[in-house]
Nucleic acid binder design. Structure first.
Lengths: 341, 341
DNA sequence: AATAATAGCTCAAACGTTTGTTCTGATAAT
DNA sequence: ATTATCAGAACAAACGTTTGAGCTATTATT
């Protein structure tokens, strides 16, 4: 197959100037009075020689790379994986490509990644920020790069975001426990300080208070969203003289760790202990005890986030679709036992 | 914080020429006899004004973007998610960024993505190809873009690849069934034609033949790696007058679908039917019946693939680390029942 | 017949780098 | 006193685009 490396070669084959070829290819033939005949020849020859412009050069000239940066704490986590998927698909539909970055939930890495993306001149950034500190991300925004926050939001900034209503999700879950008679409910959290986490904890707290159940600070425990954390915290709980009747696990991996510890201790769900996990997964229904979960609208998060970012980039509806909170859904299965008092 | 947009501004602040600044910043100060004093000033001022070069411009000039394209059939699948993760991390360590593309397991999409990545002037491509046809990928390689294939390989090409030894994995799994007395074993496959799939089927076949068990073609069924496929095929199996005693599910999603169908039919694993799944996952141990799986070395696939690609890009060890097949591991749990004949 | 208008295209600068070559003083060698 | 050497830096082209401005025939207008 014949092919050509740049517009210059194409122009010389066509016996036309570079500018003419460029204009035709960019659909500006009409307004620059390039004849129909010429236009057609340009299009045909471009196709024949498989030419389409070098995106790097184009990016430099136009100061627009049609590229967006995506910073995710853990792409191996299927929750983020499916968000990434919708974002990628939506982006491509609109002519954008995704530069994927995994922050490993580390704040310094995240800061470096933001700088890197700036140097790569991405047209926008979608980030699930790792932490509470937000200077490095607002800084990027102030440099003029549109930023969209997902999954978590950053307090005391007015960065636009789209998240699940984590507070509501936790409220629903906790009230479900309570409705089934539970009073002593542990909460294994993820990273303290992360908005998603703290909102969930708050929902948990408020649900208890609403029903006049004292909240015990020792029942709120945990350090991160990983499996090991779920395991360790659950072991601690089981070592207690009187362990709680229920565990609210604030992530899918935490709940997996919990299950491991429970299994190891020879306890069964929900007979010995009940559990609800944040984040529905493909396997949730098929666990030893089918898990009651709080489902987050992952596809919608991705789609809305990209849409909003695109609006900012295109400067349409400035500051409109700013802060979006999506409804979670409590999926009832069998991991919560009704207990009598 | 003071900042500067390009090397020109920086140079004028420093009262130096652009070339001098560029050379210092690229570590070529010495060889161009730039004085220590000047060099230091350049470094300091660059840091002070938070300058580092525009990667787009650099990419254009150097014809090297420090970018690699990653084409994955489904980034929401945690198997691919964790491969992507190691690749991203390894890449970043080496100064590369990843452009992520989800092919949706669609061949046309894949072909378009390859073209796009070429236009974006990536320095290399890592791809888990969707199909059997390989022209579009060899074509890219012939354009001079290094290509590395993962997870699956492309027959009748000599593209370098790193995959699991799928044949061996299937052999191990099937022989395990046989060792425990199973003779009537179904095999629910993914996409027919994909090497990973076909190797697995071949391993299944050979294991049966090796033990003089006739292979029944009707016991090899299925259309893709998804959950729904697992569900539908399992239902078909259960509708048979005499259903098999064991199911070999060729992906983690297929096995999930199988479980769903079994559960729906009121059957339990392994008492009513045994099952082994290809692809170990975080949840495999915690299913209603802890699943015996064939584990693939995901991290290693990612790491080796990127390493090999880097070698090709850097033109070291040409054609050496070409075709890598990694050992799978059979993880024994409880989903296979010993049956007596 | 002279001028104006227009169709149809080309020139050249610019985006921000890197880099081969060249320039300018100062010092060393003759 | 002249030339050679070298330290220290600057010039300008190039990477592949896009685009404002300009150029040249041809046709329309007066």
């Amino acid at each position: 197959m014949k092919s050509v490396n740049n517009i210059k070669e194409l122009a010389s084959i066509l016996n036309l100037s570079i500018s003419t070829v460029s204009r035709v290819l960019n659909g500006k033939g009409k307004s620059f009075r390039i004849s129909e005949a010429t236009s057609k020849k340009v299009f045909d020859t471009a196709k024949e020689y498989n030419y389409s412009p070098n995106r790097v050069a184009r990016g430099l000239k136009l100061e627009k790379t049609d590229t967006i940066g995506l910073i995710i704490p853990d792409i191996a986590n299927p929750y983020f994986g499916s968000i990434a998927k919708t974002i990628e698909v939506e982006a491509r539909k609109n002519g954008y490509s995704i530069i994927l970055c995994d922050s490993l939930d580390d704040e310094n890495t995240e800061a470096e990644l933001l700088q890197l993306l700036a140097k790569r001149k991405v047209d926008g950034i979608i980030i699930a920020p790792t932490g509470k500190s937000s200077n490095h991300v607002t800084e990027i925004q102030e440099q003029g790069i549109p930023v969209m926050v997902i999954d978590r939001y950053l307090p005391d900034t007015n960065l636009p975001f789209v998240t699940t209503d984590n507070y509501l999700g936790a409220l629903l879950a906790t009230e479900h426990f309570i409705a089934l008679g539970h009073r002593n409910i542990a909460c294994i959290q993820g990273i303290n300080g992360v908005s998603a986490n703290n909102e969930r904890v708050k929902g948990y707290r408020d649900a208890l208070q609403k029903h006049r159940i004292p909240v015990s600070e020792t029942m709120i425990m945990g350090t991160d969203f990983g499996e090991e954390n779920g395991y360790l915290q659950t072991r601690k709980l089981l070592a207690l003289p009187e362990h709680p009747t229920a565990i609210f696990a604030l992530s899918n991996l935490i709940s997996l760790g919990s299950i491991r510890a429970l299994k190891e201790a020879g306890l069964t769900i929900p007979d010995d202990i009940s559990i609800i996990s944040f984040d529905e997964q493909a396997w949730s229904a098929f666990l030893t005890c089918p898990m009651t979960t709080v489902e987050q609208p992952r596809e919608e998060i991705g789609r809305l986030a990209f849409g909003a970012l695109l609006n900012i980039i295109d400067k349409v509806l400035p500051e409109k679709t700013d802060k979006i909170m999506l409804q979670p859904r409590l999926i009832l299965r069998e991991s919560v036992k009704k207990i009598l008092k």
